[in-house]
Write a protein that binds this DNA or RNA. Sequence first.
DNA 1: TGAATTAGTTAGCTATGCTAACTATAATGA
DNA 2: TCATTATAGTTAGCATAGCTAACTAATTCA
Lengths: 151, 151
Amino acid sequence: MSTEEKDIRYQLADRLHSTAIHLLRRLRVQDLASGVGPAKLSALSVLVFGGRPLALAELAQAEQVKNPTMSRLVKDMEHDGLLRTRRSPEDARSILISPTELGRKLLLAGKKRRVESLADALKPLSRVELEQLQDSLLLLQEVVRRIQTAS
Amino acid sequence: MSTEEKDIRYQLADRLHSTAIHLLRRLRVQDLASGVGPAKLSALSVLVFGGRPLALAELAQAEQVKNPTMSRLVKDMEHDGLLRTRRSPEDARSILISPTELGRKLLLAGKKRRVESLADALKPLSRVELEQLQDSLLLLQEVVRRIQTAS
DNA sequence: TGAATTAGTTAGCTATGCTAACTATAATGA
DNA sequence: TCATTATAGTTAGCATAGCTAACTAATTCA
């Protein structure tokens, strides 16, 4: 583990952070165009692609957010008809959250808008470059999971 | 430009978005530990590494944020002694914004904390993988610049 | 020199984070 | 058994950071 490698990691970490910030700032425009913010779309996505109803705490953990934060997002989305909740038959303290058909449709439409603008920006890349990005993204997803939240 | 390639771009775009969201959520913890939020640290970073005083609109554009948003961030940071502003001698409507010594120190300390936790998560990667990430990040930075904000 | 433009600010709204304190339910153990 | 403790979620209240609309002050230009 050379000093040089450490330097590479530090510089890479810094640029990853900066790039993530700027990526999301650009995409925020498309997110807001759906009338549903990014946090809600992201949570809805977990429900739609998760394949089973989730408890509030599960959803909060999946989204790396505290329970009260998720509680409010869920309340808003239920009000908007994007998801429904029912009490768990096994534990009456717990709720089971599932997306509605409207929620699925809105998610896919919102995702389409957002993803399209990013996909357009990917157009100039060659097949090789796209595959390189895919590989790197796999690495990066593992890296993100490893970040220690307790400093 | 095959359909398959289009699919790859769409899937990649979607995962890029998701990964960026989760990366920043994890790092938010370290950002908040400095007592200065991520938006302020990012703007301060532009000032510190920019090398010259910037006008408000320049800083807002660099941070991809509207002027009123940056105006408030600058006001807060000036109040906290992280930067100073003076009227431009050339155009009395314009202000020139520079970081203070305190601002530089706080930026470096905050960045250290944040970058360290991300750099730690990069430790298990091999030299080859680090270099692959570096290359991909270059591609990604260009991609981000190409995202059309006007949908 | 009066009108239009430009730089920045202020006011007020929204979305999304947090902690602390609460309610309701479940599990434990004396 | 039933009182205590723990757990799931909610509510209240606060902070950060985005936005637009409407304003002030300075500059440019016809």
